[in-house]
Write a protein that binds this DNA or RNA. Structure first.
Lengths: 220, 220
DNA sequence: GTCTATAGGTGGATAGAC
DNA sequence: GTCTATCCACCTATAGAC
C-alpha cells in the first residue's frame, strides 16, 4: 500500500473505508465508545478489539479525540444519506411522516450501539462533536417533516391546532426513545421477554400510526 | 456534630440532607456528573465546586462510585415520590395521562442536569446503577399509565387498536426527548431563539394533547 | 505500515496529623 | 470532621527500530 499522509482530524471527514486497518479500528472504536463512553474506553482496548497494534491508532488518527470524531463523522454520513434518500421517495405528507419513522427504525433496529452514539452526542458537551451532523439532519429531515405537516394542515388533512414544530418533535421522539431507553422499555414490556427486531419493527409501525392518528384527529 | 459511622455505599440509600458537607458534595457531584459524565469528572473538581476538601468525599462516601450511586439514589427518591403523589390525585384515565406528562415536565423544566442524569443512566452500563429507580418507576408510574389506557380502551373512550404498552411509551417519550435532545430541539425551533421554561411548559401541554388526540381518534 | 519500549502526566485513594 | 502529603496504578502519546 502506498505511503499515506497522516490525516488531520481537524479537517472535514476522511473516507477510511478503503484502508482495512483503519476500518477495523473505526469498527472497534464505535462499539466501545458507544457502550462505555469516550473517557472509559482505553486506547489499548480498542487495539485489542480491532486486533491491531494500539500505536496504529495514533498513526491513522492523530489522537483519541480524532478517532472519536472520525467515528461520529462516518456514522453521520450514513445516517444523513439514508434519511435523505428515504425522504426523496416520499410523496404525500402522510408518506413523509411514515418515511421518517421508518428510517429511524431501519437505522436503529438491531444496532443498539448506534442509538447510544446518538444519545451520548445529545447529552455530552451539547453535542459539539456532532454539530455538523445535527445541522445537516435539521436541514434535510426535521425541516422537511415540519414542512410536510404544515402543508397537510393547510390542506385540511391534519388538524391545524398543532404547532408543526412540536408535532414533528412528538413524531420523532417515539422511535428514538424506544431504542435509547431500553431498560425502561424492558420494564414496561417485561412480560414479553427480551426485545427482538420484530418487536422493534412492530413499535415503529405503531409509532407512525400513533403520530398520524394524533395529527388527523386533533388534540384533546 | 456527633461521630458518624462511615456509610456503606452498598446498602440502601442513606439520607444525607441533614449533613451540610455531604449535601454540598452531592449537589456539586450531581451537576458535574450530569454535565461531563462519571469518568470525565474529577474528584478534585467536585471538591472545589462544593467548596469542600476532596478527601472528605472519601469520608462520607466510600469512593467515587459510591458518591455516584448516592446522587442517583437521592434523585430517584424525589422523582418517584413526586410521580406517585401526582398519580394518586388523578381520577379518569385522561387525568392519568395528563398527570404523567405534567409530572415529567415539572421534574425536568429548568433542570437540564436532571434530564442528563436520566439519559446517562439509560445509556451507560444499561442503567445498572439505577435499576432500583427504574423498577420503582415501572411499578408506580408506567404500569399505572398502561392500566389507565387499557381501562379507557375497555370503556370505549380510547381506541382499542393501540397496544396499551406501546401507547404508554409513545406518551412518555415526548417530554423526555424534548429535554434530552436539546441540540435537536434547538435546531428545529431555532427561529424562536433560546428555549426557556415557557417553551418547556408549552411543549408539555402540547404533548398531553397530542397523546390524547392519538388515543381518542385511533391510528391511521 | 507495524511494533516495542517507555516517557510523562494524571487521578483515585489512603495514612496520619490536627 | 477536616486537611496535607503522598503513593501507586494506569493511561495517553511519542520515539525510534524494523
Amino acid at each position: 500500500m502506498a505511503r499515506r499522509k497522516k490525516p488531520d482530524a481537524r479537517t472535514a471527514a476522511t473516507d477510511y473505508s478503503a484502508i482495512a486497518t483503519a476500518s477495523a479500528i473505526l469498527d472497534a472504536a464505535e462499539r466501545l465508545f458507544a457502550r462505555k463512553g469516550f473517557d472509559a474506553t482505553r486506547v489499548k482496548q480498542i487495539g485489542v478489539a480491532a486486533e491491531v497494534n494500539p500505536a496504529l491508532i495514533y498513526y491513522y488518527f492523530s489522537d483519541k479525540r480524532g478517532l472519536h470524531q472520525a467515528v461520529i463523522d462516518r456514522f453521520g454520513r450514513e445516517l444523513v444519506g439514508r434519511a435523505t434518500a428515504a425522504l426523496a421517495a416520499a410523496g404525500s405528507p402522510e408518506d413523509v411522516v411514515r418515511a421518517v419513522v421508518a428510517t429511524q427504525s431501519a437505522m436503529l433496529s438491531g444496532h443498539p450501539d448506534r442509538a447510544r452514539i446518538i444519545g451520548r452526542e445529545l447529552i455530552d458537551h451539547d453535542a459539539e462533536h456532532a454539530a455538523e451532523l445535527i445541522s445537516s439532519l435539521a436541514r434535510n429531515v426535521f425541516s422537511r417533516l415540519r414542512a410536510a405537516i404544515a402543508q397537510a394542515q393547510a390542506d385540511g388533512t391534519f388538524s391545524s391546532e398543532y404547532d408543526p414544530s412540536y408535532a414533528a418533535l412528538s413524531t420523532i421522539s417515539q422511535v428514538i426513545y424506544f431504542h435509547l431507553a431500553r431498560p425502561i422499555v424492558q420494564a414496561l414490556l417485561r412480560e414479553r421477554g427480551t426485545i427482538g427486531r420484530d418487536e422493534e419493527t412492530a413499535f415503529a409501525a405503531h409509532a407512525a400510526g400513533f403520530a398520524l392518528g394524533a395529527l388527523s384527529g386533533g388534540p384533546r
